[in-house]
Amino acid sequence: MTPRVSRTTPYLLLAPFLCVFAVFLAYPLARSVLLATERSFGPSASASVGLENFRLLLEDPVFWTAARNTLVFTAGSVLVQLPLALLLALALNRPGLRGRAVYRLVFFSPQLVGLVFSGIIASMMFEEKTGLINRALHRLIGFDPDFPWLQLHVMPMLILTALWMYTGFNMIYFLAALQNVERSLTEAATIDGANALQRFRHITLPAIRPVASFVVLLSVIGSIQLFELPFVIFAFTDYGGAGPENRALTLVWYLYQQGFEVGDLGYASAIGWMIAAVLFVLAFTQLAIVHRRPSR
């Protein structure tokens, strides 16, 4: 009955994707394993050094500075951003709320401003004396107009910028998840006398758990790879490099410095594998948590 499906068709359809995938993903991934055991001088000359790169990394104080900064940023942005995003989603999810679409649009819009452009805006907003933040806060609450965001308080500054950029984005995920909450269940609980906190704890939270844990993982993964924002704010200024005393240096920025300023692609790959290792551990932990207690 059915005409024979040509055997080659699926391969033909997959060919463009698979060719690119093999050459620009599978090969570089395999190469990065080897590269991490080499020392290189630009892309054309390298020498094998075994596991020396990893030994050097563990003793490299700049690497640890970058790791600490990245950790502070990740913890700060996840802990501030996600609860706020969830609260916003809950507020917007109230039945009969007027102007929901407009609020959603406004809160989401900073996400469209790319990291580089946000960085440009932030670098001026947080400038002492001339920046809007210090001037406005000074006028409103008498805040120190010379508060050195860009000299001393780099990570809080970046956390605030990321808060502006991504809270609305995460809110969209939570809003979508809240659609899975059975409204009849919430209403029944209300009639039975459960207060808002109890309803949240026993009905809403279990229903949004899968999405919530996904959002946490996504935020952590994104935060650990922070690069563009601090790079644009600091690399093109008088401070040069990663701000005073490397206060703006992140892991990916250090990878970039080693690979493309120093020219040691081997050391850069070793840093890349350290980042990957952290992410793998986090991803597996998340999977384990989600699967241990199935949501229901």
Binding site: R7, P10, Y11, L14, L18, F21, V23, F24, L25, A26, Y27, P28, L29, R31, S32, L35, S40, P43, I221, I224, Q225, F227, V252, L255, Y256, G259, F260, L265, G266, A268, S269, G272, W273, I275, A276, L279, F280, A283
Partner: peptide, 29 residues
């Protein structure tokens, strides 16, 4: 088709690779 499972698993695995890891080898390539 033959190899469908392999392709699916390989591409699925690629989802967990952080893009910065590939910067140096891609530059070299």
């Amino acid at each position: 088709f033959r190899g469908k499972r392999l392709i699916t698993v390989a591409v699925l695995g690629a989802l967990v690779i952080p893009p910065p890891l590939l910067l140096a080898p891609t530059y070299e390539l």
